[in-house]
């Protein structure tokens, strides 16, 4: 175990955390909404890709596209179901309903995909690259590059496109946005579809690292929550930095202190941040950074 390898691992895991969280960042920043079904949507993304490959025999990249489309669809359906709660921004009800939605997804996935662990096979997972004492896989490289691309694209979308400006208008003042002739229900639909597509995309890139289980959603929702809170709720750039920092923290804590207490340490960190910077819990108006 060398330290440099741990840093490399931390960077990779950090990008995974950031990519998994990007959809929720958008949801929270633009729509001031939460989705505690996020983790189960991650799980469904991974299983849809796995199932798709098994059923069709088509290669992994095609399965990624299929999972992203299904993810976007789940997000859009969720928005339709939650329309009234979204428009009134009733956060407590939303929390409970999205938790329930996640449980439904988990139940349905259990029935459809079975309870046994499976492996989402990516051909890039077995391609390793060695540089002196450190190594990583081509899958890791794809994950890091894809995360950077998604974050940069999101910033560009928010700052330079008509839809992005509409999203920022909704973020600041949804009621006033109506007077710009914008159907805000459709903007919310786009935001939810992005959340669903992004978490599914993340799942297909991250899941090949470990076996997948239909019960794995909960861990994902927890880490995502930590990333989003650490990043200063709803800030795009903040989430990226928070994901990366959390990845480095877990990798180094696991190597230098104890892997058994990593999760506890992450929660301690979360509580410390929430106690020290309570102002951050109010979503920032300029989340497009």
């Amino acid at each position: 175990m060398n330290l440099l390898q741990q840093v490399v691992n931390g960077v990779i895991i950090g990008h995974a955390y950031a990519l998994v969280a990007v959809g929720w960042t958008m949801l929270l920043g633009a729509a001031r909404l939460v989705n505690f079904g996020h983790g189960q949507m991650y799980m469904v993304g991974a299983f849809v890709a796995w199932w798709f490959m098994r059923l069709t025999g088509l290669p992994y990249p095609v399965a990624v596209v299929a999972a992203v489309l299904v993810g976007a669809l789940i997000g859009a359906v969720m928005q339709r179901l939650l329309m009234r709660l979204t428009l009134s921004r009733d956060l407590v009800s939303l929390m409970i309903v999205t938790l329930g939605f996640g449980q439904m997804l988990e139940g349905a996935a259990g029935l459809t995909f079975g309870a046994r662990p499976q492996t989402l096979t990516s051909p890039f997972q077995s391609m390793t690259l060695h540089f002196g004492a450190i190594w990583f896989t081509v899958q890791d490289v794809i994950l890091v590059v894809a995360t950077l691309v998604v974050f940069l694209a999101l910033r560009l979308l928010l700052n330079a496109t008509k839809f992005g400006v509409a999203v920022r208008m909704v973020a600041e003042d949804p009621v006033l946005t109506r007077l710009a002739g914008i159907d805000i229900a459709r903007v919310y639909m786009g935001i939810f579809a992005f959340e669903g597509a992004a978490v599914a995309f993340a799942a297909t890139l991250v899941a090949p690292r470990t076996p997948i289980l239909t019960s794995m959603g909960f861990d994902q929702v927890v880490t995502t929550f930590v990333v989003v809170v650490l990043g200063g709720i709803g800030s795009v750039g903040g989430s990226y930095v928070a994901g990366l920092s959390l990845g480095l923290f877990t990798a180094l804590f696991g190597a230098l202190v104890s892997p058994a207490y990593t999760t506890a340490a992450v929660f301690a960190l979360l509580i410390a941040v929430m106690a020290l910077r309570p102002g951050q819990l109010a979503a920032s108006a300029n989340f497009a950074r």
């Binding site: 400006v165 920022r168 208008m169 600041e172 003042d173 108006a285």
Partner: peptide, 12 residues
């Protein structure tokens, strides 16, 4: 919109 520039405000 306070968080949008003048030009962004006029975009739509």
């Amino acid at each position: 919109f306070m968080g949008l520039t003048v030009e962004e405000n006029l975009r739509e």
